[in-house]
Amino acid sequence: MSDAPCEVWFYHLERSSAEQVLPELLEKTLGRGWKALVRGVDRGRLETLDGLLWTYRDDAFLPHGLAHEPMADRQPVLLTEGLDNPNGGDALFLLDGAEPGDLAGFARCVLLFDGRDESALAQARGRWTYFKRGGHPVSYWRQGAERGWEKQA
């Protein structure tokens, strides 16, 4: 990992839910040879997501685990509520307004937010300003008409 500041990418969800978008983003992350840490705020939601990641597509396998399970530090994708990085993740995914914590050690932070929720939009705007002032390169991605992603800023 370089000493470069962590890139922060904002994904504005308008047509899809985090559950629909996250598996593909995690596959791309693993395809880069990176580990991923998915941080949420609710253990029940993370456990539901755990089940989804085993079954989201018949022809795919996405190795992952929950932070409170054995060998969490060995998981390529780890789901957690904690602010630590037990699996040495390169990419941090933030769900449901989870706190980013210290981004040192991460190459990328991906903030997924629901564009139909005014409070989520307001929080994303505040975090954009916070990260930009902190010297992090920030990017804004919006879902296009065909479900793909278009970089807006």
Rank of each mutant, 00 (worst) to 15 (best):
F106H: 12
G115N: 06
G101D: 12
L112G: 07
G65V: 00
N85Y: 11
D96V: 08
A91T: 14
L95N: 02
L79A: 09
F131M: 05
L79W: 12
V138L: 02
L95E: 05
A67M: 11
T129V: 02
L92W: 05
D102T: 10
S139P: 00
L111Q: 10
L83N: 00
H68M: 13
A122D: 11
D102G: 01
A98G: 09
L94Y: 07
S119A: 12
A122V: 01
G105Q: 03
A98C: 09
S139L: 10
D73T: 10
F93G: 06
A72N: 11
G88E: 09
A60K: 14
R127F: 02
H68G: 09
E99T: 13
G88P: 04
R133M: 00
R116F: 05
L92E: 03
G105S: 05
P86L: 12
L62S: 10
Q75R: 08
N87R: 11
W141R: 06
L94S: 08
A72R: 13
G144I: 05
E99Y: 08
D114G: 02
A72M: 12
Y130W: 14
E81D: 07
L78Q: 04
L83I: 13
T129H: 10
F61T: 15
V110H: 04
P70F: 14
A120K: 02
K132H: 08
H68E: 15
R116T: 11
L103I: 06
A67V: 06
F113I: 04
E81G: 09
F93M: 11
D102K: 04
C109D: 04
C109L: 05
L94P: 04
E99I: 04
A107N: 05
D58C: 11
R127K: 09
A67L: 08
P86T: 02
H136E: 10
R116N: 13
G101V: 14
D96C: 08
L121A: 03
H68W: 15
Q143D: 04
L78G: 06
Q123Y: 07
R142S: 09
V138Q: 04
P70W: 13
L121G: 00
A60C: 10
R125P: 00
